[in-house]
């Protein structure tokens, strides 16, 4: 564990808590893409299959349980409890265009052609594009609530901090995982235009509204 990864995990934790607070306080899931949350649930389920078979640390287990629990709770809020406020018309990204190529790539490019390894690789690749339905939804509605912008900023920062973690691990431990790093770079790049909007607008108290 190093400071970059700890900050990354805390940023990820903050993103999930911000999202839950937004939903619970406003009793609304307006502007939130249910499809992205389903993709995140798939990512966590596929990645944490070893939750019961390999124990790494209390911290690792607690975080995995929290991430899996909250993402399914979020899906429950979107598609059941606050279903009336779910904007399915704008949440129209075709996730099959993500899952099929990512699934195929996981079969072709992985560290070892073994079931658990392929599933893990699939979760890494899927996570790098899982935010697309959410960003697509914001581009369709043309705006994002400020709290949603904070959620996305924290979520985008988490993987950016993981990139720092991998740089640190490369120089400190000589460890390097090309698959995780490449997917992490792609994932962070997808947030760049949002980061730009966030820093130039939200930080100055304005709302994010696309092509103004």
């Amino acid at each position: 564990m190093n400071i970059f990864r700890l900050c990354g995990d805390m940023s990820h934790l903050a993103a999930i808590i911000i999202l839950l607070l937004k939903m619970w306080k406003t009793r609304s899931v307006a502007g939130i893409s249910g499809k992205s949350q389903i993709l995140f649930a798939t990512v966590f389920t596929a990645r944490y299959l070893d939750l019961f078979t390999s124990f790494i640390s209390i911290y690792n287990t607690c975080m995995k349980v929290f991430f899996i629990g909250t993402v399914y709770f979020t899906i429950y809020l979107i598609y059941m409890k606050f279903k009336a406020t779910y904007d399915s018309n704008h949440d129209s990204f075709r996730v099959e265009f993500l899952i099929v190529p990512v699934g195929g790539l996981a079969f072709l490019v992985n560290h070892e052609f073994a079931p658990l390894e392929i599933i893990w690789t699939f979760s890494i690749y899927l996570e790098s594009v899982a935010i697309l339905p959410q960003l697509f939804m914001i581009s369709k509605t043309g705006e994002a609530e400020t709290i949603t912008s904070h959620y996305l900023f924290a979520l985008g920062s988490y993987r950016a901090l993981y990139l720092c973690n991998w740089i640190y691990r490369y120089y400190a431990e000589g460890f390097f995982d090309l698959i995780a790093v490449v997917a992490g770079v792609v994932q962070t790049i997808l947030y760049c235009d949002f980061f730009y909007l966030y820093i130039t607008k939200v930080m100055k108290g304005k709302k994010i509204s696309l092509p103004a």
Binding site: D9, H12, I56, M63, W120, E173, D177, A180
Partner: peptide
């Protein structure tokens, strides 16, 4: 050294 892998990451 611990078996180096990304699996110890979240």
């Amino acid at each position: 050294a611990t078996e180096q892998s990304s699996k110890d990451e979240l």
